[in-house]
Design a protein around this nucleic acid. Structure first.
Lengths: 249, 249
DNA sequence: GCAAAAGTGTTCAATGTACACCCATGC
DNA sequence: GCATGGGTGTACATTGAACACTTTTGC
């Protein structure tokens, strides 16, 4: 008898938890846990982050990085990948857990802890498509140097992802993940300069890249206007993977 | 009227949530979130981790790293510090968020996501005291090279903390945090060797340390048996802090 | 022929690595 | 006087940093 009452109450409990409005989160004894993914790419010689415009409270009308609640039976990496797949056509993606942000005041009227990830993508692998994404009125690339007002603590999260990307880049050539499959050395150098926020010496950069044996000559060249064509390179996955242990120590 | 019923149900809900047994966690719509702290030190020329013996299910009788649930109004760093303070007399501690582990199967019969931290402490700052710590039957240092069977995924968490400590040590001299306030160069070198798991050249090591200007001569010497006394050094906090921007990039 | 970006080597400084012997002390 | 760990310097290799001119193309 007692057990049946508790079962009924638990069932009601579950339903209430499911439909409770945001503002009651803080009144329960639990935290919500989300993943948020900073998606970076390089496009038009600019380092850009994918932002969505929120069409629901809180922060309706503000921009934010894509995210979502972690499902009960889903591990956190899979949740991040799911968020990523909603917005992109992923393939051989660079996705890394960044940091977990959990200030009690980061989310209004609720305790929401977010496990932040960052991903490096080729711009060509992105589909900018709002359809089917509930609560989103727009989706756009934004230059990281010129961000609009952001929801929650997403400005801090993006800044931290840039810092981490910079640290990673000093150890291994992850900038490839941001470029088209075939790229010129100048484009590669430019991507390094955008991430590291400093100019690099052209000859030293090329020497270092070419001596690392991770580049493959494609024997193709750019066709451009009024200048010398540039050699296109691609990225030696096999050599990189064999060096991964070294690059990532 | 409807509001009152909901209020009563929510109150019952809160009570039930508070007292529900572990096995019903997974039946609710929420995750539990904990912090776990890997506490490292060097003692008797060994790298050691602080473990507690669990006196409650799950994993009763197994060893685990100290941890606890994050309170609703507490940020995650504070929760980690709270766990640390229960076991130690902290002062100027090195505490860093490590990684968030959230495999659905890591915790039996519940979904518990844990935000792992690691801390580097002087052995002298630890109090090994079980009193007042509910659910703990023992607390001991264990050599990281010789761990007992551990609860949950704590073996993985410890291993990851060692990897991270190694990476940090290559960038900045955090090994100080593990040693007594006054130490010999040989002790410092030994701590590097324990963390990096490789032998270092004595002359090169001393040259590097002494030229970095982060060591202060105390003009004190060890008094030992049948050997030459060794100079004791301490750690120049001022110089280190001014270099922190550099050490941590 | 000119604008615009591609491509190319050498020199120097700093840093890391290898390596072997004398010193101070307690017993 | 001997056992034990403390303390010391040089030579070489590797890596990073500075620096300016020629080449190829489209117009």
């Amino acid at each position: 008898m007692c057990f049946e009452i508790i079962s009924v109450l638990l069932a009601i409990n579950r339903i209430l938890l499911y439909y409770r409005p945001m503002r009651t989160f803080a009144e329960t004894k639990t935290h919500e846990v989300t993943v948020d993914v900073v998606i970076l790419t390089i496009h038009d010689n600019r380092l850009k982050v994918l932002l969505i415009k929120r069409d629901k409270e809180p922060f309706r009308g503000k921009w934010s990085i894509p995210g979502g609640f972690i499902r009960l039976s889903e591990n956190i990496d899979d949740a991040a990948l799911r968020v990523l797949k909603e917005k992109t056509t992923v393939s051989n993606i660079y996705l890394e857990q960044l940091y977990t942000f959990g200030d009690p005041l980061r989310y209004p009227n609720a305790r929401v802890i977010t496990c932040a990830y960052f991903a490096l993508l080729r711009a060509e692998d992105i589909k900018l498509d709002v359809k089917g994404t509930e609560g989103v009125s727009d989706i756009q690339w934004h230059e990281v140097e010129n961000l609009p007002p952001l929801a929650f603590d997403h400005k801090e999260i993006i800044e931290y992802s840039l810092k981490r990307t910079r640290e990673r880049l000093e150890l291994c050539p992850i900038a490839f993940q941001l470029l088209p499959k075939k790229f010129t050395l100048t484009e590669l150098q430019k991507s390094y300069e955008l991430i590291l926020k400093k100019d690099l010496d052209k000859r030293n950069f090329r020497k270092k890249m070419l001596s690392s044996n991770i580049l493959v000559e494609t024997n193709e060249y750019t066709k451009s206007v009024s200048k010398r064509p540039a050699a296109l390179y691609s990225f030696d996955n096999i050599t990189l993977n064999s060096k991964r242990g070294h690059f990532f120590s």
